[in-house]
């Protein structure tokens, strides 16, 4: 697994402050994680280790909670966000095949980010473009009637 670029020292310091305020409080786990997610945009490994040590929770449990809730991410957001619609209309018109293709060609799962930090995939429900399905929105651009074989060309436009 590629390690994300380190946080700035100032941000890392803030993370430690947040964690420190839950010292010895295992029940504060979800709360501290969600504050860190909000502050840092993701949850780096060394931060999770500090959470485990400071709260007195096993790292096994910390990682279990992080990977259980979709709210938490282990990688920083990609430079571009692909919002893929899996609403009813887009679904029947082939959204699942798009997800399959993204997984195969980019190793991308919903909620995940490519190792090179280029794309983050989010699955959403309805862009209000049901007549244009399957629809995806990359950053602020909507792409309509996307076919799996056209995905590569579309994505290549986003460096």
């Amino acid at each position: 697994m590629a390690q994300a670029a380190a946080l700035s020292p100032a941000l890392r310091e803030e993370a430690s402050e947040i964690i420190g305020s839950y010292r010895g409080q295992p029940s504060g786990l979800i709360q501290v994680l969600s504050r860190l997610q909000e502050k840092l945009g993701y949850l780096p490994r060394d931060v999770l280790k500090e959470v485990a040590d400071t709260l007195g929770v096993s790292l096994t449990e910390v990682y279990g909670v992080v990977t259980f809730y979709a709210l938490f991410t282990l990688k920083p957001r990609g430079r571009h966000t692909i919002n893929l619609c899996k609403g009813t209309a887009c679904y029947v018109r082939g959204a699942a095949q798009l997800i399959e293709r993204l997984k195969k060609d980019y190793g991308l799962k919903p909620g995940d980010t490519t190792d090179d930090g280029r794309y983050t995939l989010e699955v959403i429900r309805c862009l209000g473009a049901c007549g244009l399905g399957p629809a995806i929105m990359i950053d602020k651009d909507v792409h309509a009637r996307v076919k799996p074989e056209k995905l590569g060309e579309i994505l290549s436009r986003y460096e």
Partner: peptide
């Protein structure tokens, strides 16, 4: 070891 991920992805594993 403990449960990691969720749903069909759930696996009993060490952290990370």
């Amino acid at each position: 070891i403990g449960p990691q991920e969720r749903g069909f992805e759930t696996a009993i594993a060490p952290p990370f």
